[in-house]
């Protein structure tokens, strides 16, 4: 009997934790979008006020960040500086693939960010400022959608995990 209870508890916690992990994924995405937006704001400052060329600007930003974002910015900066890529867009996309592995951004976010890479650096400052403005609005929409998904799914996945644990327990006993 004792053994059964311990086994059951183990199943319960395992399933509960799985639920929490799945729920966390939804909780992390809005945070990651917010962090990314903050880094883009730094980039805007470098471009609009500092007039810093992109390779240098990316390097400067990477020194102020941590984790996956730091890796992203330093990777793009290096890729541009060693001169192995033809266009900024390809370096940006390459870095973006890495960024997606290290964060909870989803495929829709990737497409949005990838498109932004196509206009970054390709026009004068006034024009760049407009692109940044538009990009913030789009990122905000993604953030709101992510927030909405979190509200809907976070609780559901948590209880789903726990409840499935209970079901398995009942079936086994």
């Amino acid at each position: 009997m004792m053994l059964k209870i311990i086994g059951g508890l183990l199943i319960l916690t395992a399933c509960g934790l799985m639920g929490i992990a799945a729920a966390n994924k939804f909780g992390q995405r809005p945070k990651d979008i917010r962090r990314f937006r903050a880094s883009v704001q730094m980039l805007e400052t470098e471009i609009i006020y500092g007039c810093t060329p992109l390779p240098q600007a990316f390097h400067n930003i990477s020194t102020k960040l941590e984790g996956a974002l730091k890796l992203f910015y330093s990777m793009v900066s290096e890729d541009l500086q060693i001169g192995c890529s033809n266009s900024f867009g390809t370096s940006w996309s390459k870095g973006l693939d890495k960024l997606l592995q290290g964060t909870n951004l989803d495929i829709a976010d990737k497409e949005l960010i990838e498109d932004f890479g196509k206009v970054l650096g390709s026009s004068d400052r006034e024009d760049q400022k407009k692109h940044f403005g538009l990009f913030y609005i789009q990122l905000k929409q993604h953030e709101e959608m992510a927030e909405e998904a979190r509200r809907k799914n976070e609780k559901m996945y948590k209880s789903l995990g726990f409840l499935s644990g209970v079901v398995i327990f009942i079936l086994l006993v």
Binding site: C51, P53, G121, S123
Partner: peptide, 13 residues
Amino acid sequence: NAVSLVTNFSMYS
């Protein structure tokens, strides 16, 4: 690509 390389990927500067 030529313009982008010549301007160090940064036309604004």
